[in-house]
Amino acid sequence: MSIFVYAGASQYMALSLIASGVVPFLIVTNTFVVNIRHFLMSASLNVKMDRAPKWLKAIYAFGVTDESFSVLATSKEEKVSTPFAFGVMLIAYGSWVSFTAIGHMIGANLPLFLQAAMSIALYAMFIGLLVPSMKGNRKVVMLAGLAAAIHSILHVTGALSTGWSILAATLLSSIVVELFYVHGRKTAETMYKREEEA
């Protein structure tokens, strides 16, 4: 499953659904809902990526995950080159497949306290990627904070399933903050003009 369905959350979900005897069609639908957030990520990545033939982009689209997207999108370069993207994604995909196999063999033989501690690794990586961009950049702080707040509220109230909730929180936060900044810039410009005229 790890070779074809390159999406961790979907696999977890599918396993629990198979175990409880849900029909395959619903499992596929759920997979779609969980993965719909990558639609936004790919659209965003498209702005950041170097130009490349469409078929090449169609290939590395397979490698767009939360992790590879975060690494590529927060890179300090103005544009991300295609070979670099392939490098990041191949390493990620290779370790994904091979460590699924290793994990399968080791199973639950890791000491419990280590298993528990490792569960934080993914989020620690996300935090490690986010914080350097947050430093001295109020816009980034607002974006992350607002999206986190919206997603937390949607999660607690159970209004949307996780896939849609992440999508909604991300989109809403990105739009609201962008409008706020565009509006702020305009007001500053008109004030500047008025001062000039005066």
């Binding site: 990520m41 927060t74 996300f126 986010l130 707040a149 919206i150 937390s152 936060s173």
Partner: peptide, 22 residues
């Protein structure tokens, strides 16, 4: 404006991925 929103997405999505899951 659309390009601006798309450029914001990485940071917003990281926020939503981290909280509340962490």
């Amino acid at each position: 404006i659309v390009a601006g929103v798309l450029r914001n997405i990485p940071y917003a999505v990281l926020g939503a991925l981290i909280f509340p899951a962490v």
